[in-house]
Design a protein around this nucleic acid. Structure first.
Length: 439
RNA sequence: GGGGAGAUUCCAGAGCGGCCAAAUGGGACGGACUGUAAAUCCGUUGUCGUAUGACUUCGAAGGUUCGAAUCCUUCUCUCCCCA
């Protein structure tokens, strides 16, 4: 398989330095990597898109390296940031590194073959480099003029950028150089926003090599030794940011974004976005995708594309069992389930379906209160923050209990407790709360 | 340095003494339709609430008035034009 060709038809190719394609075709396996800074406790779906670059890279017979930015995470990448960032403390950084490394392990094959994936951490080499040494080994070869021309820096020139963040590209560039020297790393990939940082690396390598070889003229004559390749940043047809939902980021960590919500995120992909996303996030081949698209076009309401994306991605990230539960939960919550249907599921399933859904515990006698009080003050304002808010939405027809739409003067005793202790409260179409009544 | 315009509820933007909790549009949220979509239509959108109710809002602080987002004074900030 031709890596570049594969990325091209999938719409995952944004930019690359000249000669990559030939180089990749003539040398197998090529060592390539992507870096992830431990800025959060988990990777999110945006990172998943770049992870897919590595997945394809490995499938095409090349050797993928995953770099966890233990050092760069301490500095802060100014790319795409309009303001200086706060440092994370050591403990958090370390925790994040461990968590992210564990997540990355599941996407690539780290076990088999000559091109098995490897994990790196740039803290391992940066911890031993002194400031003076760094200035002499890296800083000397890149001009400030060059660094200031980068978009990430240029945008911040007006508002201010610290020397620390300004230096970021040099650190990332040095990574590439270091890896080139030690393990023959030839390609760095990333999202389009990383282009500037990556090319600082290829530039540093070019200049360092010229210097080492005693060349005075660093011209075009010199063959490319290291390459950059980026994937387009994902956008949505409606202009909103990809990878966010009402609740914020969609994380890969199941404790931050439940598999159910994760599955729902993909299932809710807009028709216009689905063809692009299915190419990026699934490994389905071209013929299969085109067939699915045709089927989708014939019967859009079945949302064949969305289901295919949701299945592949959820299974890859959370496993088949979690995926099946998410499907089951969705069927219950969005199908025209009745109280009977709700009551027919056993407690374990019920609880796993509502994993990640807000739960409120109330004493049995609270069922005596009127419905407005119950949904606001009695449930400690978890569902509605005030009585008037509860009343307004009930009057607007936006509240259901056990899938039955309620009105203001209903009694709670009219509702059957699921498993003798639960009430399922639904606010709007997609917000669920499980109220647990203690005996 | 001189002259002018302005600051209104999440945003844009009306209002220029009582009928103003403040038009209209956007956004957000809810409903109908549908495919858990798009488009469309309807409702809600200061807080508490159900009382032709109370309380807090119109850059800030004072003042005039029975009554101020609206008038006056001072202050703070923004924008434009001329030098």
């Amino acid at each position: 398989m031709n890596f570049i060709e594969e990325l091209r038809w999938r719409g995952m190719l944004h930019d690359y330095t000249p000669g990559v394609e030939e180089f990749l075709n003539q040398n197998k396996p090529v060592a390539g990597y992507i870096g992830f800074d431990p800025t959060a406790a988990s990777l999110h779906v945006g990172n998943l898109a770049t992870i897919m670059l590595l997945v394809h890279f490995q499938r095409c017979g090349h050797k993928p390296y995953v770099l966890v930015g233990g050092a760069t995470g301490m500095i802060g990448d100014p790319s795409g940031k309009s303001a200086e960032r706060q440092f994370l403390d050591q403990a958090t950084l370390l925790q994040n590194q461990v968590a992210i490394a564990a997540q990355l392990r599941r996407f690539l094959d780290f076990e088999n073959g000559a091109n098995k994936a490897e994990m790196l951490n740039n803290y391992d080499w940066f911890k031993n480099i002194g400031f003076l040494q760094f200035l002499r080994e890296a800083g000397k070869y890149i001009t400030v003029n060059y660094m200031m021309a980068k978009e990430s820096v240029k945008k911040r020139l007006e508002t201010g950028i610290s020397f620390t963040e300004f230096s970021y590209q040099l650190l990332q560039g040095y990574d590439f150089y270091y890896l080139y020297k030690t393990i023959g790393m030839r390609l760095q990939m990333g999202g389009a926003d990383q282009w500037g940082n990556i090319t600082t690396g290829t530039e540093l390598i070019r200049r360092k090599l010229a210097h080492e070889r005693g060349l005075t003229d660093i011209s075009k004559e010199q063959a490319q030794e290291a390459f950059a390749l980026t994937a387009p940043l994902l956008t949505k047809a409606d202009g909103s940011k990809f990878g966010k939902s009402e609740g914020g980021n969609i994380w890969l960590d199941p404790t931050l974004t439940s598999p159910y919500k994760f599955y729902q995120f993909w299932l809710n992909t807009a028709d216009e976005d689905a063809p692009r996303l299915i190419r990026v996030f699934t490994l389905l081949d071209r013929a299969t995708i085109e067939k699915l698209e045709a089927e989708h076009a014939a019967a859009p309401h079945l949302r064949i594309l969305q289901k295919a994306i949701a299945e592949e991605v959820t299974v890859r990230v959370h496993g088949r069992t979690a995926y099946e539960k998410a499907v089951q939960a969705s069927a219950i919550l969005f199908g025209n389930a009745t109280t009977e249907a709700l009551n027919s599921i056993d407690e374990d399933t019920l609880l796993s379906v509502f994993e990640g859904v807000t739960q409120v515990q109330v004493p049995a006698e609270s069922l005596q209160s009127n419905i407005v009080d119950f949904l606001s003050v009695v449930t400690r304002n978890e569902i509605f923050s005030s009585k008037s808010e509860a009343r307004k939405m009930i009057q607007g027809g936006g509240v259901s209990i056990n899938k039955i739409k309620i009105h203001e003067n209903m009694q709670l005793s009219e509702f059957q407790l699921l498993q003798n202790r639960y009430l399922l409260v639904q606010k709007g179409k997609k917000n669920y709360y499980l109220v647990r009544v203690s005996a």
